[in-house]
Simulated scan of single mutants.
Amino acid sequence: MSDIRVLVLVGSLRAASINRQLAELAAEIAPDGVTLGTFDRLGELPFYNEDIDNDAVPEPVAALRRRGAESDAALVITPEYNGSIPGVLKNAIDWLSRPFGEGALKDKPLVVTGAALGRYGGVWAHAETRKSFGIAGARVLEDLQLSVQTTAFADKHPRENAEVVANLRDIVGKLAAEVG
């Protein structure tokens, strides 16, 4: 069996964010034969504009769409900003959803997870992100969810929280099993 390639999108641009640390952890604990690769250029994407969505899209957009098309699945790890999706992530969804009905993640399994400061650990943003990716054409795995309060890490890396490690390992394994 060839490697399963999972595109990872992190909804926070901060270099040391808990969500970026979760993405690193997911890559570390992925099962054999599963490769996770984070697309680190979300901050370079211009706001979605149909006027520039043509054969000569900006290079960061072409790179994102190429990575999406080359992937077998996607893992989205995001915080919650003001009760919803971070703008940079919503913008990526908009670019990935085009051309309408034929986006780069069409019919590919996708899981949304992450951590946020709020008392619910980002569940609102995660639900909205799942909805948006579903409309954009991805096959969202609704049953695979992990929303963690950032306070659970008490200034430690998520890899030091055994429950988070076990849950994330389970999610990545089940996401990979959905590739087919």
Rank of each mutant, 00 (worst) to 15 (best):
A30K: 06
D3Q: 11
N91I: 02
E80H: 06
L7C: 08
M1T: 07
R65V: 08
L89K: 07
L7F: 07
A92V: 14
V57A: 03
A62G: 14
E50G: 05
G11H: 10
A69S: 13
G43C: 09
R67M: 13
T129F: 12
V10L: 09
D107Y: 09
R20D: 00
P79G: 04
S147M: 04
A154W: 04
L64T: 09
S147K: 01
N19L: 01
A30P: 03
G121Y: 00
P99W: 04
R5N: 12
G87W: 15
D155V: 01
L175M: 13
L168D: 12
L89E: 06
T150E: 10
V10I: 01
R41E: 15
R66C: 13
E28Y: 09
S2D: 00
Q149N: 12
G87A: 09
V112E: 00
K156Q: 14
F100Q: 06
V111E: 01
H126V: 02
F47K: 04
A166G: 01
G43R: 03
G33A: 05
V10P: 15
V8G: 10
S84T: 15
E50K: 12
V112Q: 12
K106V: 05
D94C: 02
V172E: 13
G122Y: 00
L146H: 06
N54I: 08
E24I: 10
N54D: 09
Q21Y: 02
V10G: 08
A63M: 08
G122T: 00
L25H: 06
F39I: 05
L168A: 07
I4A: 02
G33D: 03
A30Y: 06
